[in-house]
Amino acid sequence: MNILGIDTSTAVSAACVLRGDGQAFGVEPPPAALERGPAHSRELMPAVAHCLEEAGLDYRDLDVVAVGAGPGAFTGLRIGVATARALARAHDAELRAVSSLAALALYVEEPVVLPLIDARRGELFAALYEDGRRTMEPFAAAPEDVAARVAATARDPLAVGDGSVRFREVLERAGIRVAAPGSPTHVVRGLSVCRLGSTASPGHPDAALPDYLRLPDAKPLPR
């Protein structure tokens, strides 16, 4: 089974092809790329094409297209999901949406992991993974509130992700450990999306939508 995994929940465009023989071919941007403005529309498809070429595969050889559905920046999520949908439909591959927070936590070698994605407006998207299991559903909150909620679990998590980089000071002041600056664990990896995608249940393609976690800002008119 050949799997393509992509993620655009943060400023970086991650892509990886996990070939049927277990070999992975990824474009894994460095942590420094998290600090730039996002350019998914210009970067994602070239990354996908590059992975396929390295793997010696064609688009039609893909059996599964897995996409990090967020939470994360809305526009980036939509670019990722729209791309994944069309890639899957082009040759009837299975489309599987996975959690970007789960992907972020997957390769962190710690018993308790706190993946944090910048939610803008001074907030974080967060979830908690203990011994590989999700023990806190994804939510959006200010860094102080995230720290308070996590403190209640009485375990000592390691925070990773662009959100933890951005709010390192606040988090550390609140007693949360944050992975070292420049650590690759801050980047959502395409390979993690592939791995999660390999076991995720396929949904109806139309049902694959971003996990926004937030409503649009606009308020309906009073009736």
Binding site: S41, M45, Y59, R78, I79, A82, T83, A84, R85, A86
Partner: peptide
């Protein structure tokens, strides 16, 4: 609208690429 345009552009690019 940039966010709206990007949905169509991303979808179209991916479909065209995958179909060559």
């Amino acid at each position: 609208l940039i966010g709206a345009l990007l949905v169509g552009v991303s979808w179209a690019k991916a479909l065209a690429a995958a179909r060559g």
